[in-house]
Amino acid sequence: MLTLLAVIIGFLYAASIYMFLRRSIVKLVLGIIFLSHATNLLLFVTGGLRIGKPAFTDADGSVDLATVSDPLPQALILTAIVIGLGITAFSLVLVYRFYKETGTVDLDELAENDQS
């Protein structure tokens, strides 16, 4: 399971960097989304994987450390996902607005515009 997750995380990082290197700004936004997902998965792994063990205490409030997952990374991911959602929404609006203003989504044309 850990190996599978490691491969997925690595693949997501690679995909996001590939997307960053493309010319289209829309793909840039996709790259940002991949990058934040890769990081969220990485955070998830850092707590240690315990399959089938939820991060809850027993009904009487006692905790057996051997049978529960670490709740902190899950809380971190929740926060990070919410922040990521807001940022993705903002960057989509930014790209859309940019397209409306300039009529292009090509980063090379963006650089040419800079000269003038």
Partner: peptide
Amino acid sequence: VVLNLVGSVIFLTAIGLIYG
């Protein structure tokens, strides 16, 4: 936006690693 977002994500990655 893009460079600062990449910076934030690198920060978050470092947090994950250091917690691990």
